[in-house]
Design a protein around this nucleic acid. Structure first.
Lengths: 214, 214
DNA sequence: GCTAAGATATTGTTCAACAATCCTCAAGAG
DNA sequence: CTCTTGAGGATTGTTGAACAATATCTTAGC
């Protein structure tokens, strides 16, 4: 048993949540889920703690845990933090070791290849990977895990997106351009472009959320 | 019962850890602590999860939880993240609402008043408050809680500091200067000064840690 | 239709037991 | 003497059941 049972249960729940099997707002009943997954309530609770830490679920005292429902304010805030962490990565790009810089270019390639064969789900994954690679230029483990949590949270908001293609396609050339600016050492322009980029993306998500909820 | 038992237990443990009653490296035995605090092992485990989330303790599978021992790499990394978050605050200062800007100035005053009466412990608290106020200029709840966790982690490393005065005193005028740059709208210079400031502080802590461990 | 009291269901916490894993330390092989 | 090996003991990991505390739902009364 390499991983603890609680870990494994948390992994399963994470997959179900991000796969849409447990949509936002769903209550995760301890008894029902415990019976379903074949674990005791106590172990299930330990798994819940892990997901709470990733803010995929929220815990309300004496009410239980629920799959998080992303609000507009959450999306806005996530993009604020992303702006801070990703621009920090861009500013550190000059001093970043080669593999980290390469990861950025690689994510761009990956996205374009996925788009060429029409796999828009993979395009979405590549886009997240691209932004994680940007933040990772800082070379900070804490920034890396913070980005992972932010992007996981954002993936919940993506459930409101009707068409992955319409959202991701316009950003493919922008990713390419951004990577180009970094390679050419134009860090100032890269940072400026990144900020407007993030603003645009945030606006698109907020618009989609407004439509879905109304 | 406004707070859950696990919450209360976590609060008690946090106080003991930060107060030095449970020095870094100490194992938090489930049975002994449970008997001591009068709670069951399961509840204690829930409390542990909260402290793990704050990274005050670390969990090693099948070994238990231990009060975190800050390594040099941790301090370096914490300062990397602080640089990202605090400079983001400085860059957002221009757009920040008045109360947030006022909090920065207030923290500086607080530190100087504490120094005047020789309360160096309070000077330390005021310094942390100052930096938290800088990061808070972004107006982001997630950045705020991230800073809280980073500073709590750093407080552990401060245990290696022999003299709080020698560490904090030189930074009093620098805090004042930084706040002045912000008030005068010289954001570019403020950001530059902040970066060298953080570099200096990090170096001092690393030096102290090297001495203590040897 | 509204309020209030009680019934019901769910979570919060405890307890005791057993399984799984790690650490210690001593015995034996090289 | 050093290194491996293997009990033995201690601690954590997990389970299941029980009870307490709390929130939600239902129903009676006005």
């Amino acid at each position: 048993m390499a991983l603890s049972t609680a870990q494994r249960v948390a992994d399963q729940l994470r997959d179900r949540i991000q796969g849409g099997g447990l949509p936002p707002g769903t209550q995760l009943s301890e008894e029902a889920l415990g019976r379903d997954l074949g674990v005791s309530r106590n172990t299930l609770r330990e798994a819940f703690r892990l997901l709470i830490h990733e803010s995929l679920v929220v815990h309300r005292l004496n009410r239980g845990v629920f799959v998080r429902v992303p609000e507009a304010a959450d999306v806005t805030d996530v993009y604020r933090v992303r702006a801070a962490l990703e621009t920090a990565g861009v500013r550190a790009a000059e001093r970043a070791p080669w593999p980290l810089r390469q990861a950025v270019a690689e994510a761009v390639d990956r996205g374009e290849r996925a788009a060429a064969r029409g796999d828009w789900r993979e395009v979405g994954s590549a886009d997240l990977r691209f932004h994680r690679a940007l933040a990772a230029l800082s070379g900070s483990p804490r920034i890396d895990s913070a980005m992972d949590r932010l992007l996981a949270e954002l993936r919940l908001a993506f459930h409101a997106m009707p068409s992955p293609r319409r959202f991701h396609e316009p950003f493919l050339p922008r990713n390419r351009a951004l990577a180009g600016l970094l390679e050419r050492g134009e860090y100032g322009r890269a940072e400026a472009e990144l900020l407007t980029y993030l603003d645009d993306a945030r606006q698109l998500i907020l618009d989609a959320m407004r439509e879905t909820s109304s």
